[in-house]
Nucleic acid binder design. Structure first.
Lengths: 219, 219
DNA sequence: ATCCTCAATCACCAGTATTTTCATCGTTCC
DNA sequence: GGAACGATGAAAATACTGGTGATTGAGGAT
């Protein structure tokens, strides 16, 4: 399951691919519209889970690729350069699943991707980190094939970190996601749960502390 | 266990039914959307294992039938015309299990059907978990060969869990499946029925509680 | 129409399990 | 060396689950 990245600006494309790669996705970068179309028409696209498409492309613009992408049943997230209402509406009307405005936070892109993949039934069912396997369908975690008993909060925290591996989360960010915006209490609570995960999964090095900020799950 | 074939082109419908018949499936051909809807709403649909639905139908199109099909928990494979671009993504998004493009190879259809039937636990007539046997045809459950008297709701719950064993279900998910989306009431109701199943089948360990979430039947 | 029966749901409580807080200790970085 | 930050274990606070029995509601029989 790859992510097709159709973006002509090599700097941005590489940035995206690097980040997605780090987060555990396989990427397939394409730098112009014509080539993208050829791939969509001639190659086997069954293992493409999602396409990130720049609206402004040389050769053939992003909207023109829509037809091919839809034929292959590939959900699309558009990357729009400016906060351009016309493009957004146009894109969504053309059948895009979502759009995101450049420049964007990697975390936001990952969240939106995750949502689209989930919605279209292409969501990851398993996430592997070293010798630990998270089975999202089973709602279970195992290390070296042996089930590990995680408390609900620990599980949620692990899944959140694992879905966006190599991305740094602040304590506030984690609290917002796991407890909700209306949470009142210590941000230090997160530390306790992180501690439990590190202990139970032997993730002392895998979950890295980012001083004064938060945590990051590395792989 | 029949296959519902909703297709207005009689030539194609007959072709499908003939081939499915040859492959050992019983078929129920319907030639328009309105009639299909009536059948889904008024008739007993429990013996329908799968529906093959043409997207372009007179009366009511294939997508409009989705709601009825889902309510009856009938998995769907859409049949789409080759040039019909929007439908494919749309269909899968709406909750179809699969789709197939006309004209198609009969063999491919059979393979896809088999996969869907397998995935959704239909086609099978019995499910065995430890010393418990669920006979879907007889609508009965026995433990060590001795019939166990389950209340209707308990039976439905057991079958749902058993068809997707090792998959975690949230209380909301179970309610959506067994009671329907329009259910209003306590999610704790599920707990009571789970309790009954555990007691009657001695499934205290087999049905595992996932704290704060729901339940999972393990094997 | 009324009663009867049975299944399903609800409400409550006790027992657990989970989460949070807090105090203390260790580490890191100036 | 000191200050700030993070880790850890245990206690306290909170939330969740499982069981029980009462209540409701549907459907069938009289």
């Amino acid at each position: 399951m790859k992510i097709l990245v159709i973006e002509d600006d090599t700097a941005i494309s590489e940035l995206i691919c690097m980040n997605l790669g780090a987060a555990g996705y396989e990427t397939l970068p394409v730098y112009d519209g014509i080539l993208a179309q050829e791939i969509l028409e001639k190659e086997d696209c069954s293992d493409i889970a999602l396409a990130l498409v720049d609206v402004m492309l040389p050769g053939k613009d992003g909207f023109a690729l829509m037809e091919d992408l839809q034929r292959e049943q590939i959900p699309v997230i558009y990357l729009t350069a400016k906060d351009d209402v016309i493009s957004k509406v146009h894109g969504l009307k053309a059948g895009a699943e979502d759009y995101i405005v450049k420049p964007f936070e990697v975390l936001e892109l990952l969240v939106r991707m995750e949502k689209v993949l989930q919605r279209t039934g292409r969501g990851r069912e398993r996430i592997t980190i070293r010798d630990v396997v998270i089975d999202l369908k089973q709602h279970s975690v195992s290390k070296n094939g042996i089930k590990v008993n995680l408390k609900p909060m620990e599980y949620e925290l692990l899944v959140t970190l694992a879905k966006s591996r190599n991305v740094a989360f602040s304590r506030e960010e984690l609290i917002k996601r796991l407890w909700g915006t209306d949470y009142v209490g210590e941000t230090r609570t997160v530390d306790v749960h992180i501690g439990q995960l590190r202990k139970k999964l032997d993730f002392h090095e895998v979950i890295r502390t980012i001083s004064k900020t938060g945590y990051r799950l590395e792989s």
